[in-house]
Nucleic acid binder design. Sequence first.
RNA 1: UGCCCGGUAGCUCAGUGGCAGAGCAGGUGACUGUUAAUCACUUGGUCGCUGGUUCGAUCCCAGCCCGGGCAGCCA
Length: 465
Amino acid sequence: MQRTLIKDANARTEPLDAILLQGWVRTRRDAKAFSFIELNDGSTLKGIQVVADATLPDYAHIQKAHTGASIEVRGKLVPSQGQGQKWEVVAASFTILGEADATYPLQKKGHTLEFLREIAHLRPRSNLFGAVFRVRSRLAFAVHQFFQAKHFCYVHTPIVTASDAEGAGDMFRVTTLDVGKPPRDEHGEVDSTKDFFGKKTFLTVSGQLEAEIFATALSNVYTFGPTFRAENSNTSRHAAEFWMIEPEMAFCDLYGDMELAEEFVKYLIRDAKEHCAADLEFFSKFVDKELMARLDFVLDKKFVRCSYTEAVEILTQSGKAWEHPVAWGSNLQAEHERFLTEEHFKCPVTLYNYPRAIKAFYMRKTDGCAPDRQTVAAMDLLVPGIGEIIGGSQREERLTELREGMALHHLDEKAYWWYLDLRRYGTVPHAGFGLGFERMLMFVTGVSNIRDVIPFARTPGTADF
RNA sequence: UGCCCGGUAGCUCAGUGGCAGAGCAGGUGACUGUUAAUCACUUGGUCGCUGGUUCGAUCCCAGCCCGGGCAGCCA
């Protein structure tokens, strides 16, 4: 007999004389003459109730069907006599496939997220993490749907890279050299020409520069893959390994970039609401009561666009006592961004045109900006509660200005010869952004720690499982 | 990396300078339909580690380890 997923069993409109279910016991409630078993197979949040009568041949074994055990049940799907569920399964036979004794750490009681993090091999069996990872899977699919429908080409950019100054942060070194006894050159320095790739290599911090190569050939492209930052960040919004989505569009300026970013965020929220309704309901009940209101709010509102210079004026005139001073030319701090999105505009905000000196070398110098207030076509999309969820820019497509930017950031042109070639041969205006997939998940689920929306979190000092 | 908070039973937590506590989980029994079932009884401890103060430290002090929050870096 073919197995029925509990998701499908729950959704039936007609009873079934014969059904086979397989899953894990969430809880068992015994009475004198029968037991109730709540069975879950991860296909959906809500489990199914199995009724096991004491007259079953193996009924004595049911005492071993503790929380966590894997079992197989054959029986009938019938309307439930009890409250709280439409269907239940009256068992004709059951088999315990794998027992779980009293040491099984997950209880039917609530656990703290901190405890569950320590048992990352078992936490997907909890309601919360089952829901989180179903939403994660759905949204990953939605990312592809969004771009494929727009005829963007999916590009697999390399994980191992030799450019050591992409400018997005500290990098993890990749080497096969014996770190205890590395080969050394005549100056006593580690000789990287003896390394696997014949040069220093690292894990990627961004696929953007390679995505630009493909955008200047296939027009509209996107990447979606793991990204690594070796920063010693200990916050609820940072991980050393995370997934990022980076679209890159040829013949596109900053405004087209902001347009796409805003549409993309709304699309993902709408998709989760449509396809993960039960899981989102769970989050809004147990994780964040304001969740639904906030998601609807973002869907309904048109995102505010505000230039960096305007933002500085708003912050200066707010009369607030800032912990970090506000001054044109310095970075906006978390408290400033929070004020703008949560208090001043009360709305998602796209900030754009940042001072050139505090942004990356590849961002396009704004036409006609004052010499003492040079800006670049950068943008950050801020949402209430999380802060920055997207960072992007129009890229500098003019060779002279790009070289100027590299000089400003003290970069060696030789290392970027191919990047400069893109400006030498058929250059076009182009733009793109990066969306932190986990940050998007945090926003959609209301889960407030990035470690809880990624299956196995890598953070400073932690790389278990 | 800096500042702040925490570490007591499998889990969530209370507590005290003088024999270590509760709820849940586990075990035993009861219960004719439960929904984190209920009721009774019950097993269970390196009080994070090391050192110091003290007649005596889980408690006070120092260092270390681990976890969390906030900030910076960013997505």
